[in-house]
Computed example of a mutant assay.
Amino acid sequence: MQNLLKLQKQLVPDLLNDMERRYTILRSIRLTEPVGRRSLASMLDMTERVLRSEVELLKSLHLINFQKAGMHLTTNGRQLLTGLEDVMKDISGIHEIEKQVCSVLGIAETIIVPGDSDKLSLIKNEIGKACARQLERLLDEKNIIAVTGGSTMASVAEALADVDVMGKELLFVPARGGVGVKVSDQANSICAAMAENAGGNHRILYVPDEVSDVLRSTLLQEPSIQEVLSLIESADIVMHGIGEAMKMAERRNTGEEGMNKLKKGHAVGEAFGYYFNCEGKVVHKVSTIGLQLEELPQFKHVIAAAGGNSKAKAIRSYMKNAPKSTILVTDEGAAMEILKGE
């Protein structure tokens, strides 16, 4: 494939340019549908005249439809877009970037979606879809999936409505207690959404993410909590996000002493209640109930998801502690920044 693409670039470069442009238009419509021509032209930095010509062609090919509310993809358009993803990664060089990121981070696999979720928040939905496809690929007949909270995992839950898990037995369990005040982004809510969208079951962990040592000892004696913790330990797949240190500390309502500790330790990344500096050193850990960082290597599959240029330092810092078998799902913005830091 690579050799063919190189030859095509030399012989008919306009063909590949047209292909990339139309793929970008289709993908942008999928991200924002229903969308009007003016809004789409502005998003793509393209004149309305050029965009009009392109979308008329795509309509004639039955790849998009026009409605009063705006343009949207047809079933054929969605199928074509999915089929083109790997080809477009070769054309744009993203496959090569994925290999470079794996080498820099020392992990098994990296999946990169085009774009930067810091610049376009809808790219986070693409990360969610990519995670859902990875999960679909890794599933056995019976599965326990441990899931953390966060907006990226919430995107994964939404995307699971579009994957094929027919005949699979799925049990989603929260890997952590609740963090922050936004209920929809907490692990319990996300597990419930994943179970509903994938036709599986879920369990609830009725504990806050951060607790005192005394309360932790008491809660660990509760049979219902012990049952969920046992399920977490038996999980086949772990799916989790990676946070920016100071933002996660704010979500946890960390006190002045803890914030000073993070600042003094130059913390940049967070996962599972552990805060890391740029070298990957743990500079602070909160007392939590649920999956612990040192337990990760025991799991068969670990999928980490985070995107956006601003998350690059957090990803790099965490990956110095991550299992080598980790699959990272990220976006182009984070990936390019990760490589810059090398």
Rank of each mutant, 00 (worst) to 15 (best):
P174M: 10
A175H: 03
G177C: 11
G178Q: 13
G178R: 09
G180N: 05
G180W: 06
V181Q: 13
K182F: 11
V183I: 15
S184P: 03
D185N: 03
Q186A: 15
N188K: 00
S189F: 07
S189C: 10
I190S: 01
I190P: 12
I190M: 12
I190V: 04
I190D: 06
I190E: 07
C191N: 04
C191D: 04
A192H: 11
A192S: 03
M194D: 08
M194N: 00
M194T: 06
A195W: 09
A195Y: 09
N197Q: 14
N197F: 12
A198N: 02
A198I: 05
G199V: 15
G200C: 11
G200M: 06
N201K: 06
N201F: 00
H202G: 00
I204Y: 15
L205P: 07
V207D: 05
V207Y: 07
V207C: 12
P208Q: 06
P208F: 04
P208I: 03
E210T: 04
E210V: 15
V211E: 02
V211K: 02
V211Y: 02
S212I: 10
D213S: 05
V214Q: 02
L215T: 11
T218I: 04
T218C: 00
T218P: 01
L220S: 10
Q221I: 03
Q221G: 02
Q221L: 03
E222R: 15
P223A: 05
P223E: 11
S224D: 08
Q226W: 09
Q226T: 08
E227G: 00
V228Q: 00
V228K: 09
L229H: 12
L231Y: 10
I232D: 01
I232W: 08
I232Q: 09
I232V: 12
E233Q: 05
E233S: 03
E233C: 08
E233V: 04
S234E: 13
A235E: 11
